[in-house]
Write a protein that binds this DNA or RNA. Structure first.
Lengths: 226, 226
DNA sequence: ACCTGAACACCGTTCAAGT
DNA sequence: ACCTGAACACCGTTCAAGT
């Protein structure tokens, strides 16, 4: 009922809502989405919930536990494609689904990379990959490795993509200088091919590059059988 | 000459050594290697150099600049394979070389992923990839995209691998509980394939998985030509 | 027994005061 | 002009004191 004694915007939480672990985790994701990974501090999360910082420790044992809980929750946001579309469309769809979810919740990427995550919802994604590959008749080894390769590629790709998108956004709003490559400064005998093709700084990470790598992995998987 | 007034180990820096940007960056990598990313603070770095924290700001504009400089320096540690071994051995060798370097300097992985890096030494790696592919007769588009796919896969993979190796090390020293999957708790109608194969928690990230994904990408690239 | 404000041991960076 | 100690505005977490 009483307003929190701060200068920040008043908390959005209904005052009669009981604080639960689920409420804490969802608010943490909302904070992550709104203000990014660095903004997720115990103090600011507590403030958004209209609660004293130490009240959070009733529902999470520490910040690592908060991050682990929030990750398992975020995995539930990933739509799993249907099973009957074939292994190639299935794995490709799962990759695009994971990427879309991570781009929608860019703040989760840092904790996702930083800690192992074998919660029940991750296992559901793994089951989908195994089902696709075994139904298609691949060997047990490929059934395990191929979906893992696609998932690792996707998470790794987006882990690189998100900071570069955030950088691009800062360039647009004028708070960062755009990246440029000064081709004229490169010694021509060391950079002959670079100076012929002159790939722009945006070539390293973009949507077409994601699709190129994904399709190469899927082509390579196709060559292993079934 | 005078010892730093702290309780920490005395700094290893020779007292008559002039502080330069290069010395600062190399000590930052040494601190990263020795104690990990979280240990790299301006204050602790200054302490190791036997210098007051603000003295660092003479050589770097802020912590982001320190990280950018240290990344460009770390790229020089990556051995580039010879040019005359063919595109497949060349790209594969580059990937393994990048992975080995990152595993030797695990603390650089976090800043490497977190910010764009187009320093001159990165461009030298890119030039190597372009040279391999153009010499082999691939199209300009594939010459740009294929090395990028291999490099993104490798960096992304190791970004996931490093925290899991650190976790495994904590398990070995007894400070973390090992990850287990409780197969008995999984509802059998949702997890039929998982319960048949029962892949262990270590299957997601390991050396064989890295090689599997790398070979699939290389196979997929081979299919595009030349 | 439960809750929480104050405190602790840190951060990166600013800036005024010193030489 | 150059340098730097103190200070500021934060952290995550501990813990003693309060109800």
């Amino acid at each position: 009922m009483a307003a929190t004694p701060t200068t920040r915007p008043s908390p959005p939480r209904a005052t009669n809502e009981r604080l639960t672990r689920d409420v804490v985790l969802r608010e943490a994701i909302a904070l992550l989405d709104a203000e990014g990974y660095d903004a997720l501090t115990m103090r600011r999360l507590a403030e958004r919930l209209g609660v004293v910082p130490m009240a959070l420790y009733r529902h999470v044992t520490n910040k690592d536990d908060l991050l682990a809980g929030l990750l398992d929750l975020a995995v539930t946001f990933v739509p799993i494609p249907p099973l009957d579309i074939g292994w190639r469309a299935g794995l490709g769809g799962l990759a695009r689904s994971i990427r879309a979810t991570m781009l929608a919740h860019p703040g989760v990427v840092t904790p996702l990379v930083a800690q192992p995550n074998l919660g029940p919802h991750s296992l559901l994604l793994a089951e989908y990959g195994l089902a696709l590959m075994r139904t298609a008749g691949f060997s047990d080894e490929v059934a395990i490795r191929a979906p893992n390769a696609v998932i690792v590629y996707t998470i790794g790709y987006v882990a690189l993509e998100v900071p570069r998108l955030e950088f691009a956004a800062r360039v647009l709003e004028g708070t960062s200088q755009p990246l440029t490559i000064d081709y004229e400064a490169l010694p021509s005998e060391l950079f002959t091919h670079t100076l012929v093709l002159r790939p722009g700084p945006e070539e390293f990470i973009n949507e077409a590059q994601f699709e190129f790598g994904l399709e190469r992995i899927l082509d390579g998987i196709a060559m292993t059988g079934p």
